[in-house]
Design a protein around this nucleic acid. Structure first.
Lengths: 212, 212
DNA sequence: TAGTTAAACAGACATATGTCTGTTCTGTCA
DNA sequence: TGACAGAACAGACATATGTCTGTTTAACTA
């Protein structure tokens, strides 16, 4: 069993150097800035660039990391075992007043990272108010992530603008009527004739709840 | 009002080029790989590197972006103002077999981006099986994000290892007994004496559900 | 002891990438 | 019309960064 000629660091509480290099790279990737080989070198106190590169290449060889050869900061998480990490930022909206979706998107309450292809789809997030959708596992305070679209199909959970407020309901199309169906027996469905002043703002594609 | 000499792209439905460059960089940052100037150039079809750099520098000047001069892929989100990106990657675990949490984390099914300070906290994600927690709005197929910890307080939703399987339940501490309480009247609580072979794996801090 | 091996080291080289200088294009405005 | 400004372009240069080659160190082993 070989060993390292000189100790690289004073405190090395757990794990081998190699696994710590992996942890270091993972941390940097999570922080949004993949490290360079020389940054790894510096972080571990190596005196030669190649020392860091050897560990990195070994991690690639064993499948713990992936890389784009030649590219700067080219080390990534391995693509196998899951879809390519594909995150985008979407605005978290406050109250959506009448006709103000565009304005609300321009002036968001914050930003949210969601996974999914970085297509041109417009997305936004809303905080759920009220208990009308508890039957679908959507509780007050939950965040719904919405794909912006003007139409939706029967049975989909949508965000609709009713009068001055955006509301989350299940869409039902019956006999030419538009029904916004709560998922809570304590609430009554909202029934609209076609071409009423009701507007579909988008379709709910994800629900999130923090239990802080 | 100045204008661009040549159209850069066929379809440019909304927003100016500059705001789209900002969106592009944000997306790349969120995905964990800051773009190079030349990658921005290529993405927008510029014929000169400098064209891309002008937009990037303008965004830095107006405070929408920050950068580390000279560093490769040095464009960042500004520390203040703009959308603070605080994302870290956590492993999505498959089945957690007996004693195998560590092994499961080493060999994840995939990775998930979650928001929160990049502290040293160990986190992982699990897919919920069964309907025992529907009363708490946690449905089968939901993803729970778990903060790794060995203990928990009364009333918290935890992931516990019972025999050979990880399970999500609400923790109740009564009369020196450990109770794993389902949130569904159709399921019975699991009651354990202290020091039984039950182990808290962590506390559920977030719930996510995709509605394809 | 000599050979082997993993790891670290030193230095150089090739490429990727940020940056600079000057030019061209096209609309705006005096 | 001519000066001006914003934007894009072309080309070059300096630096950052990945990669290669060869050497040294220290443990293990036949």
């Amino acid at each position: 069993m070989p060993r390292r000629p000189t100790p690289r660091s004073i405190t090395r509480p757990r794990g081998t150097i190699r696994s710590e290099v992996l942890a270091f790279v993972r941390g940097r990737l999570a922080a949004g800035s993949p490290p360079t080989v020389r940054e790894v070198q510096q972080a571990f106190g190596f005196k030669a660039v190649e020392s860091a590169r050897q560990h990195l290449e070994a991690l690639v060889a064993e499948g713990s990391l992936a890389k784009s050869p030649g590219r700067s900061r080219g080390y990534r998480l391995p693509a196998d075992g899951g879809p390519e990490l594909n995150v985008r930022l979407i605005p978290r909206l406050g109250r959506v007043q009448a006709g103000g979706l565009r304005e609300a998107i321009e002036d968001p309450d914050g930003w949210l990272a969601v996974e999914g292809p970085a297509t041109g789809e417009e997305m936004f997030a809303l905080t759920v108010r009220g208990e009308s959708m508890t039957g679908a596992g959507i509780l007050p305070g939950d965040t719904v992530i919405v794909r912006r679209q003007d139409t939706a199909r029967d049975g989909e959970i949508v965000v609709a603008q009713v009068r001055d407020e955006a509301t989350v309901k299940r869409l039902r199309l019956r006999d030419g009527q538009i029904v916004l169906q709560p998922e809570n027996p304590a609430f009554a469905p909202l029934i609209f004739a076609p071409d009423t002043e009701i507007r579909i703002l988008g379709r709910v594609v994800e629900v999130r709840r923090r239990l802080a």
